[in-house]
Amino acid sequence: MKKVIVKPKVLHNIPWHYCPGCTHGIVHRLIAEVIDEMDLQKDAVGVASVGCSCFNYDYFDIDMSAAAHGRAPAVATGIKRVQPGRLVFTYQGDGDLCAIGTAEAIHAAVRGENITIIFYNNGIYGMTGGQMAPTSLPDMKTTTSPYGRNVQETGFPIKMTEMLALQEGCVYAERTKVSNPASINKTKKAIRKAFELQLSRAGFTIVEILGTCPTNWGLDPLQAIKWMEEKLEKQYPTGILKNSKGDSVICDKK
């Protein structure tokens, strides 16, 4: 018998620190599969951010640079400007990308910086213990919105990928989810598309991936998947927000 499905060689064979059922691991594997399939192990540089995914520099067996909180797109810019031929991607959560790192992300898109942001959105700060994120849903209970997110006081969920898609330098923006085999395959295709566009030097690309945070949502892994599809996806509909150079932006795809 022949091994047909094995762990991608771009992933180190060590256990991950993520909580049971957390879908970060699925996204890591998809990125690694794409790098394997495109034979980019020596040509890829990942930029780790700060948050739950901050130790992924140990998980990917590729060159990695570990950025300060929110600064991954600036770090990626520095790398890409020196080495325009390499695949440079950031891996950022919603706290990192949409709060402290908003400026770096927007201006990377404005410049059409030829990098890819992999944006893992679970609507909460995971690593620090379940605080409210800019992506937290209205009335969502978190450790810093214990009575539910009051939109009058704390604002509405940020539309980050929509903002990035609006910039002319952004050529591809898609929101996907990792909630079942079909959506996981779709997410992989989106990552591959973004990486291919980057290698063709098309401009800035982003793939937003809706994932879970069972621990801080207070749900078991299966309930979390259900909640993600019923609540998070309702706020953040999946679909292509921008595709190829200059195509129209299709925000709020139903």
Binding site: A67, A74, E104
Partner: peptide
């Protein structure tokens, strides 16, 4: 390459990225 960043914070982190490749920055 000269790049005018969006802030000093971004600029120093671009230095982190570029310097990490071994370039003089």
């Amino acid at each position: 390459t000269f790049l005018q960043a969006e802030s000093e914070i971004a600029a120093i982190n671009m230095v982190y990225g570029a310097g990490g490749t071994g370039a003089r920055v």
